[in-house]
């Protein structure tokens, strides 16, 4: 097996892909909630991705991503046997599970891929887990069978009602709380806007909330400071202090603003990938 070789590829829906990558150093120490940084080739960016799982025996890690940026679009071109240039990790602090009895994990869209190791890992650690999977529409639903097998109760909701219940994740969460479920913690993994509202609901009910944040970063060891965010009035680095933080302390508006910083440059890059080269670099 070559370093960082793709050993498995499965298309989950029109834009989401599940890859297994051979990275034994990472797989040996990976824990739920941790992430890696990868680079597709010499000219690529370093992007962080939360691991969707790992297998120490095979030396592989699982990455589930939506092809929405230049790097993930380039990754979309990879087939089994191809290699990434770099994979470094595991990074960040693992999910905190000690002392928890019952939690609700709320995943939005792509975030469900990241919620998967977290929710099933908690269940394995003896925590009772309710899982809310939320998607825009039926076609985007992923990992339903996997979740059903790995948590206590799974609720699938779609914005348009084309699959599961017609509801937003926040509505479903409110309903579960109203029905008398007593959670020690609510974990939000998904778009920042969804996480903001999930954490607000938790706060209204005096339940502790945890949000798994993503941010721009380069090295992942605290050296660049690009991922800093305001947590309870203090600057924290997502890469070394996170990626999970107390949701009630996150400055969501700042986080949302910062996560869109390079949006314009990225839109331009994307156009170059899909229109000009179809994903193939012109200088290779």
């Amino acid at each position: 097996m070559k370093k960082f070789e793709v050993t498995y590829k499965r298309r989950l829906n029109s834009n989401m892909v599940w890859l297994k990558i051979y990275a034994p150093l990472v797989a040996k120490h990976a824990k739920p909630g941790q992430f890696i940084i990868l680079r597709t080739d010499e000219y690529g960016e370093r992007i962080p991705l939360t691991m969707a799982g790992h297998d120490e025996k095979d030396g592989t890690i699982d990455l589930i991503y939506a092809a929405v940026g230049r790097t993930t679009m380039l990754m979309d071109q990879l087939e089994v046997g191809d290699c990434l240039a770099d994979v470094v990790g595991p990074l960040g602090k693992p999910t905190h599970m000690d002392g928890l009895k019952k939690v609700c994990v709320v995943g939005g869209g792509t975030g469900n891929a990241l919620a998967y190791p977290l929710a099933t890992g908690m269940k394995k650690a003896g925590v009772e887990v309710d899982m809310i999977e939320g998607f825009k529409t039926k076609e985007l639903v992923i990992l339903e069978d996997e979740f059903r097998a790995g948590v206590d109760r799974l609720y699938v909701v779609t914005d348009d009602g084309s699959y599961g219940e017609k509801a937003f994740t926040t509505d479903k969460l409110k309903q579960l709380i109203a029905e008398g479920n007593e959670y020690d913690e609510i974990v939000a993994v998904g778009p920042p806007m969804m996480m903001k509202f999930v954490c607000q609901i938790a706060q209204e009910h005096n339940i502790k909330s945890i949000a798994s944040l993503t941010a721009y970063m380069i090295d992942g060891t605290g050296m660049c400071g690009g991922c800093r965010c305001n947590i309870g009035g203090e600057d924290k680095f997502v890469c070394v202090d996170g990626p999970e933080f107390d949701g009630s302390l996150v400055d969501w508006d700042e986080l949302i603003r910062r996560s869109n910083y390079y949006k314009d440059q990225e839109a331009e890059d994307r156009a170059h990938v899909c229109r000009l080269t179809g994903g193939v670099r012109y200088h290779d």
């Binding site: 380069i218 605290g222 050296m223 660049c224 400071g225 690009g226 600057d235 910083y261």
Partner: peptide
């Protein structure tokens, strides 16, 4: 050496502020 220091002044997390390391 590791982590870049910031000044802890207002506005340091505005878009366009970064560490020299970054």
């Amino acid at each position: 050496a590791g982590l870049p220091a910031f000044m802890n002044i207002p506005g340091e997390n505005l878009l366009g502020v970064c560490s020299a390391n970054e």
